[in-house]
Amino acid sequence: MITSFQQALGAARDAAAMQDYPQGALYVVATPIGNLADITLRALHVLQLADAIACEDTRHSQALLRAYGIDKPGGAWLAVHQHNEAEAAHKVLAALQDGQRVVYVSDAGTPGVSDPGARLVAAVRAAGLRCIPLPGASSVTTAVSVAGCVAHDAQHGGFEFVGFLPTRAAARRDALQQLARQRGCLVLLEAPHRILDLAQQLQAWGGRQVTLARELTKQFEEVATLRCDALHDWLRADARRTRGEFVVVLHPDAAPADGDERAHAAADTLQLLLQELPLKTAVKLAAELTGQPRNVLYEQALQWKKAQGGASDPA
């Protein structure tokens, strides 16, 4: 593996060595999310120049650099992860104030997006020191680029990065109910042990399109687009589909017609009432407040309860 990147190290020096790489600066470097060949030439050059490497997992990052033929002494490594980011920032600041070039890498992808790094950057900037970004791999933009999300109007273009949902059931349910009201593109991250739970809850989103991207850039990469209410069955049809790390891209919701707009408003009202009242009471009040048919609202409430793993025919 080391030999295969020797030419890349030479190319990195040829392509990037003429640029300025000031001392006493933090270099925030994106690393591959799976495929080692996705490293940039400038990242390779800066990793070679670095006096110190700050990273989430020193063992993981040491193995990564060695795969490229880059080796750093033990004293060059600083552990900076989500549990010690604030305290470890002081060590990084000391190194920067000593004139060192410090590179920060997360375990994979672009630091500070869903990985640690934001607190470190904030501390460095607050100290009046320079942060230099080196762009590269990101699971978020990689998934969005192949999702084919098309906004239905100018107001709902682009995408919102949500990241990981709360782990507690109630907070997770509330977060999804809030997100369901948004019509723009949403990007979530999910772990393999929670993907089926998420898919079950997304059944309530009906025909809205969702793109599921797993194991991006790796050997078993898979990208599939289907309806939200079909995702759970699709995952259960093949156990391999629940393995790996997931990016979930929820496509923009179609612009509702006038009648649909009223139905959306009624659904929002019903969701709020269900948080505080029994199902039948919530349905009755929602129908009275919005003028929507009670039986339609009742069926909608049952679908939500079923998607959340609740009783299918509540009293």
Rank of each mutant, 00 (worst) to 15 (best):
H81I: 00
L297D: 09
M1Q: 11
A89Q: 04
R66I: 03
A263T: 01
W205P: 04
Y298H: 15
G99V: 08
G128P: 05
A16P: 09
H152V: 02
K91W: 02
A263V: 00
R130H: 12
A122L: 10
V80H: 13
Q82V: 00
Y21E: 09
L36E: 02
D115I: 01
L302K: 15
L176M: 03
V29W: 11
V248H: 03
T269G: 10
P135M: 11
R119D: 03
T141S: 14
P32S: 05
L49I: 01
A267I: 07
A230C: 10
R101N: 05
V103T: 10
A88T: 00
T217A: 06
W77F: 15
H232D: 11
D71P: 00
H90S: 03
D51I: 04
T3H: 08
M18E: 14
R13M: 01
S312V: 11
L235Y: 10
A37S: 15
L120Y: 10
V92K: 07
L49M: 08
D107Q: 04
S106T: 10
Q7F: 11
V248M: 02
E245N: 12
L179N: 06
A255Y: 00
A307F: 09
D197Q: 14
D174E: 11
I2P: 02
F161W: 11
T3F: 03
V247L: 08
A191E: 07
A151G: 09
K280Y: 14
D153A: 13
A118Y: 12
D20P: 00
C185F: 02
T40K: 08
L189S: 00
T40H: 07
Y27F: 14
A175N: 05
A86T: 01
D174K: 08
R227P: 11
L93F: 10
Q303M: 13
T269V: 09
Q23R: 15
Q155F: 04
R236C: 14
Q62V: 01
Q201T: 05
G74H: 14
A89I: 02
L189A: 00
F159W: 13
L120A: 08
Y27C: 09
R119E: 05
D98I: 00
S312W: 15
I132W: 05
D38I: 03
V150R: 13
Q271G: 08
R13I: 00
I39F: 05
G69K: 12
E261Y: 02
A8E: 10
I53K: 13
Q82S: 11
V140D: 02
R241D: 06
I33E: 08
Q271H: 13
A286F: 14
A12Y: 12
G109Q: 04
D253T: 06
E160C: 07
G207E: 15
G259Q: 14
F220H: 15
Q200C: 06
A204D: 09
G184C: 10
R42L: 12
E190D: 13
T142W: 01
R181E: 12
V146T: 06
D268I: 01
D197T: 12
G10M: 02
M1R: 08
G148S: 11
L273D: 12
L165P: 12
L198K: 03
D253K: 10
F161N: 10
P192S: 06
V210F: 03
R119T: 05
Q23P: 05
A16T: 10
Q275V: 00
G184S: 09
H83D: 04
